[in-house]
Amino acid sequence: MQVSVYRYNPDVDEVPQMRDMSVDLPEGKDLMVLDVLELLKGQDPTLSYRRSCREGVCGSDGINMNGKNGLACITPVSEVVKRGKLVLRPLPGLPVVRDLVVDMTQFYRQFEKVQPYLINDQPPPAQERLQSPEQRAELDGLYECILCACCSTACPSFWWNPDKFIGPAGLLQAYRFLADSRDSATAERLSKLDDPFSVFRCRGIMNCVSVCPKGLNPTRAIGKIRSMLLHQGT
């Protein structure tokens, strides 16, 4: 199979380029894209990418495969390959460090901006804080985020304003804490989101939903934040 890989090593390359490589795939086995990367790295150890758990939980290997963001370790080659060719690029919209490795500083900064931790000023009880299964169910579809950045780097609004628009991943986490019955900082959290950029740059394009490897729905969470802002404002 032909694989076209984005290559850039700042130590030696003036500019990035797409380089063609070829791999022999074992018969009758649908490899994951990460397996292909490992085969390529066997041929050329200088190829760099992040990877760890190889089961879609750690969120290291978000890359762009034939135009679509996803996790290399849980994306079967057959799902993305087009006309016998696999095209691998780093996640779009973030500075490239080397090959498929991007600098995620801006992504993490937006995540940190939403105060992604429980705030509760009451002294904690001797045991756990109680929470009904229904209240806990509010967190489903939110807490499972693995911070792989597939969504935010598929979002045009995040491409345009990565410094000001929090982006789908950060907003999903913002809502995760707004939705938590144990969190007492709702008003404070909302007031920090009510500027023209943080939330309102979302245009409902829904690229985030279509690429999320965990099947989460940031657009819906953003809608919920908007309506919370509205309720607070009126």
Binding site: P196, F197, L229
Partner: peptide, 20 residues
């Protein structure tokens, strides 16, 4: 966030702009 609204957003509130 004064920094991001800088000179020119209409109301300086994302929600107000959105509603308007």
């Amino acid at each position: 966030m004064a920094l991001v609204t800088n000179v020119t957003s209409l109301t300086r509130s994302g929600l107000a702009d959105f509603l308007i």
